[in-house]
Simulated assay, not measured.
Amino acid sequence: MEFRQLRYFVAIVDHGSLSRAALVLHVAQPALTQQLRQLEEELGAQLLHRSAHGVVSTDAGKIFYEHAQAILKQVADARSAVVQSTTRPSGSVSLGLPHSISGALALPILSAARERYPEITLQLTEEITGSLAEQLKSGRLNLAVLFDDVPLGHFTGTPLVEEDLMFICRAGSAFAPAGPGVRLGDALGSTLILPARQHGVRPLVEQAAASAGLVLGAVLEINSLAILRSALLADLGATLLPVAPLLADIERGAMAAWPVVDPAVTRQVTLCASRNIPLTNAAAAIGKLVREVSEDLCARGAWPGARLRE
């Protein structure tokens, strides 16, 4: 198997046809077809379905595509690490952020990176934490912000913040509590709108309920943050989430948030990197920047419900 075959295969999948990939790669289409055929013969599997409208990956092709992408990225990172300066890091860095935290971190990190490191191309990926952990292990991400709902033993970690989950509903809702806080048992007895179990918040809520000897009541499962927000505004229920993803609605008075007590529910937020794949200078610089941005947001009170971890 040759490195160029990986590059050719990824290009074919990305562009959806052999002819478009051949134009981008500046390779004659018959030569590209031959390299693809050799790759399939070596692997003993068909990687693509071909038709008059283009190509589509087979199941084997989808698996191979992920590995090929990771290998190409690691080679690019190795080249970048060799040539870049430690004082002026450059190159591409991929950072993964969970859906429920990107509202707090994404724009501040992008702004700080553009100002501090103009020669670094920062690529942000927004995914559920389980998917981010898998991409980090395979090398498709350089860094990822993860929670304590996934095993972190495969990674090195830099503590960022401890974040409170709050009871949030539409302003004036029938679900709104009478007091300044909400006991966990009362919150769990409400109609809750929560993500499914593969999302970081849901297992945290279930674990907190089990630890307190409580039972989670009726749940509307919505994995899209945008749809969950719409359901809250329609007063279909309340939610247990950090404030950050719904802060704009809370600040304009469309929603309200109450602290959860007896017991409180918190999550640990950690910046992670692979133990097995060394960071480039650029990735290390972005990692340090993420910590600095978190410190600044907490110091200014711009990340409500979050406290810096030492």
Rank of each mutant, 00 (worst) to 15 (best):
A178C: 09
E127M: 10
G305W: 14
A171G: 06
V13L: 13
M166Y: 15
I168V: 15
F147K: 14
I63L: 15
R79A: 14
G185T: 01
T58D: 07
S131Y: 09
L122N: 07
G16A: 02
G54Q: 06
A306D: 06
Q69A: 00
Q5I: 04
P259S: 08
T239W: 03
A208C: 05
A187I: 03
A282T: 01
I277A: 10
R267I: 05
G61M: 07
E163M: 11
I227D: 13
H154A: 13
R267F: 00
L32C: 06
T129W: 03
G44R: 02
T191I: 08
V293L: 05
A244T: 05
N142I: 00
S85N: 14
A238S: 08
A284V: 04
D186R: 04
A212M: 10
T191C: 05
S131R: 11
R114V: 10
L18S: 05
L136P: 01
T280V: 10
L124T: 14
L32I: 11
V161T: 14
V93S: 05
S94V: 04
E163K: 11
L246R: 11
A68K: 04
V215Q: 15
L160G: 03
Y117S: 02
V145L: 05
R116E: 09
F155N: 02
I101S: 13
Q34M: 12
L122P: 05
S80M: 04
E127W: 04
